[in-house]
Design a protein around this nucleic acid. Structure first.
Lengths: 196, 196
DNA sequence: GAAAAAACTAGAATAAAATTCTAGAACTAG
DNA sequence: CTAGTTCTAGAATTTTATTCTAGTTTTTTC
């Protein structure tokens, strides 16, 4: 195997070990030594690739954001009409949380303090996500299918209830998994943004 | 001043110093030494009262939850009709986040790993909050003002979008403060739970 | 109201953990 | 081929959290 491959495998092992530890024990309480052991990685390699423990947390967060944005858009862009599009976002969120509870718990429950470098990267991600959303939403607002609101409120309105519910489920405070309430959440989201 | 008073002042100083540091730098990166200095407290006292750094985080979280639940209920119980009640929750959330951004950032952005002791306390808090909510909601569901849904979805439906928006604002990703969009959020929340 | 127990404060000492450093191996480009 | 770069390794160090011992103040008990 090429070094490039071995290296990228090592990094994945570290990220995956870190995700497990972070979600089980919290970032604070997981020590680098445990990640090292789980991932079969040396101190030197880890610090070479990630800088420090927070660098791992940051890399996980950015990776997760990319995946989240990409998959949400994939689900949305399949639809042309407002109602199925909006509902698809909600349904996809419910599935995502239920199927990848660890990643979801990580993404939904921690606000990572990002380095300046990472902030820039996130800003770009946010920016292009926002633009893609606008391309889908604008015509449906024009056409009168959707209420005309300040743009930044659409995503919270549509995904907010589901994500909030998910947080409660992920921390054991609710017992029904999000995918079992997808229909209800989708309908409610639609009612909250449709033009009346 | 009595010792009781001095002690409780010391604890408040620690909590307040910790909140500042935690929200500015993150729990991970704030060190106990900084809190000690800000709060003018000795190592021994801090560990006597809080056990360890996470004990501080935990105390803050529980204090914040109590305040959140209490104030939300206060806002809600002023109203009898479903529509103004639901809207009052949203409006209050917007205010709370805007007025106490540090506490809100702390409460909304961190899932604290609680000790068993604290988990019990939270469970009781959750339980009595839930019961109080049911007392208000049940009659309005009966009367047909509100859709009849699985009970755990009402709170996420009503406050989810606002809290999700708030997270974005608190982390600098949106610029308009929540209180400026309260009306829109309140109307949308109402549409999502009203019987049609 | 004296004696004993409990709560609290203080900071030095210790333990635990993160991070740096030095050295060498593996690869890459000129 | 060789000079530079990336990567691995783990020992050494630094940083930080936590424990411990001792003394003080307050409360309780008899």
């Amino acid at each position: 195997m090429s070094r490039q491959n071995r290296t990228s495998e090592l990094k994945s092992r570290v990220l995956s070990a870190a995700l497990n530890r972070f979600t089980e024990t919290g970032i604070e309480r997981t020590n680098v030594g445990d990640i090292l052991e789980d991932a079969d990685c040396s101190v030197g390699s880890l610090y070479h690739h990630f800088g420090n423990k927070e660098g791992i947390a940051e890399a996980l967060f950015i990776q997760g954001s990319k995946q989240f944005n990409q998959n949400l858009l994939d689900a949305l862009l399949r639809h042309n009409k407002a109602e199925p599009g909006v509902k698809a976002i909600v349904t996809w969120c419910c599935q995502w949380v239920t199927e990848q509870p660890k990643l979801a718990a990580y993404m939904l429950s921690r606000e990572i303090k990002l380095s300046e470098q990472a902030k820039l990267e996130m800003r770009e991600l946010d920016q292009s996500f926002r633009e893609a959303l606008i391309r889908w939403f604008a015509p449906r607002i024009e056409s009168g299918e959707l209420k005309n609101l300040h743009f930044n409120v659409y995503v919270p309105l549509i995904s907010g209830p589901t994500l909030e519910y998910s947080r409660m489920w992920l921390t054991g405070r609710y017992t029904r998994s999000p995918d079992t309430i997808a229909k209800v959440m989708a309908e409610a989201a639609w009612q909250s943004v449709r033009e009346v």
